[in-house]
Design a protein around this nucleic acid. Structure first.
Length: 421
RNA sequence: GGGCGGAUGCCAGAGCGGCCAAAUGGGGUGGGCUGUAAACCCACUGGAGAAAUCCUACGCAGGUUCGAAUCCUGCUCCGCCCA
């Protein structure tokens, strides 16, 4: 993992379509020497999701190019919360919650990026820090005295992130306005404490990154730089990272490796090449080759994508199982006995008198409510084994057990196997 | 501090006393077509129930009315303008 290559990080990212903007035209030269760089992560949940996979990949690429990555957990940000945020606003979290989330997130990042082990410091070993550690110690007066004069509100008002909010209906609160101040202070702090000179982040972080660079220059005469990654979008404009069951998480308890694999396997044709570049470490030549496949062939590329990403996040064993199970279930054999296929036990005694399909759908988690299950049946989307069920009163009986299991399918892709004992 | 406007379902956004579980669009799900793709067409999209029906829901708390998402009062939050 830590093999240092001759590749320049900028070239690597650029070839993979991972560079959106850079603050310094000479970023390439800057990266020809090992540097310390950082990306921030939001600890608002105890798991990251596929959207946050991009920054993790970027940290890993940086490490492979010999740089030292820092993952910054935005504990301070989560501590103050965010009342705005159209959808589920960042909830105000307790210090304990944040620490817990940070540990979970660190574990997930550690699957892909190599962290320093206690006691042995390697030059490119990643470290994780929490900005609550320094931001909570900073007093209001100190902040104003040391940094206040270095922030130009005029300048801040020109930032896109601010401008868009000023005329938006929701407005912009002072609290949110201060996020960029906090993030700027973070950058300065990391520069001073760890000699971190490069910050990376999603395209939406551009303004915050720039503020940090400017603060560093004014306060410490530092020469800092930033690079942003494009936001991951779906070609059809939909939100990336959502599936039938909501967010696609990295935590196997939230999103099973099988579902995870399926999420990637179902990538639209036009997005496959981009995703291969973003979410796998396959050499760029192979990415281009796979990405060039057209028509039915594109499915091969999707299978590779799904396998590779699953392997990165859940390990080879889980990836193999998911691939194998999915391959059999969707292949000519329609074999659904795979280990990774969602399944559960069903007592033979329970089945004796027959169980309503609706009930089974809910038990299997294929429908959230009886109503939804009924709608699915009425819509012709439910099958027991291969037979379509059209009557919501239909019961599944021992006669439906084949080879020791009852298979319930919803649509073409979702299925659940009840192993009867 | 004052004036005005606003708060509706996953999101956006109609409704402005009964016909409202709430138009329309997006999203999502199911069907058709396919390649576990896209585009397109159709349907569904609060909960319980076989159904009748019942329950929950239009920022929060009360009130008026036979009847309220709709009217009134107070509160909370947001926007705009004035100071």
């Amino acid at each position: 993992m830590t093999t240092t290559t001759q590749d320049n990080l900028y070239d690597v990212l650029s070839r993979r379509g991972l560079v959106s903007q850079v603050t310094d035209e000479k970023i390439r030269e800057r990266l020809s020497e090992p540097v310390t760089l950082y990306i921030g992560f939001d600890p608002t949940a105890d798991s990251l999701h596929v959207g946050t996979l991009v920054p993790i990949m970027v940290l890993a690429h940086a490490q492979r190019c010999g740089h030292k990555p820092i993952a910054v957990v935005g504990g301070a940000t989560a501590l103050v919360g965010d009342p705005s945020g159209k959808t589920e606003s960042r909830k105000m979290l307790s210090r304990e919650d944040i620490d817990y989330n940070a540990r979970c997130i660190a574990g997930q990042i550690a699957n892909i990026v190599e962290f320093n082990r206690p006691g042995e410091e390697s030059p490119a070993g990643a470290v994780m820090v929490n900005n609550a550690d320094w931001l909570t110690k900073l007093s209001w007066i100190e902040l104003l005295r040391d940094y206040g004069a270095h922030f130009s509100v005029n300048r801040m008002l020109t930032m896109d992130s601010v401008k868009s909010r000023l005329d938006a209906e929701s407005g912009l609160t002072f609290l949110e306005f201060n996020y960029m101040v906090m993030q700027a202070v973070d950058f300065l702090h990391l520069y001073k404490s760890l000699n971190c000179t490069v910050q990376m982040g999603g395209q939406d972080q551009w303004g915050n990154i720039v503020m940090g660079i400017e603060l560093g220059r004014r306060v410490a005469g530092a020469d800092l730089a930033g690079l942003t990654m494009p936001l991951v979008t779906k070609s059809d404009g939909g939100k990336f990272g959502k599936s039938e069951s909501g967010n696609v998480w990295l935590d196997p308890k939230r999103t099973s490796p099988y579902e995870f694999y399926q999420f990637w396997r179902n990538t639209p044709d036009v997005d496959v090449k981009r995703y291969l570049g973003f979410f796998t470490f396959l050499p760029i030549e192979q990415v281009n080759e796979l990405g060039a496949l057209e028509g039915v062939e594109a499915n091969k590329a999707k299978a590779v994508l799904a396998y590779e990403v699953t392997r990165l996040v859940h390990g080879q064993g889980e990836a193999e199982k998911a691939k194998d199970s999915a391959g059999k279930a969707f292949g000519a054999t329609q074999d659904v006995t795979g280990e990774a296929i969602p399944h559960g036990a069903l007592a033979a005694s329970e089945l004796g008198a027959g169980i309503g399909v609706v009930q089974l759908l809910v038990n299997a988690g294929l429908a959230k409510s009886n109503g939804e299950a009924k709608r699915l049946v009425t819509g012709g989307g439910v099958r027991v084994h291969v037979r379509v069920v059209s009557d919501i009163g239909q019961r599944v009986t021992p006669a439906d057990v084949k080879n020791g299991y009852v298979l319930i399918r919803v649509g073409k892709k979702r299925l659940f196997r009840f192993d009867v004992r």
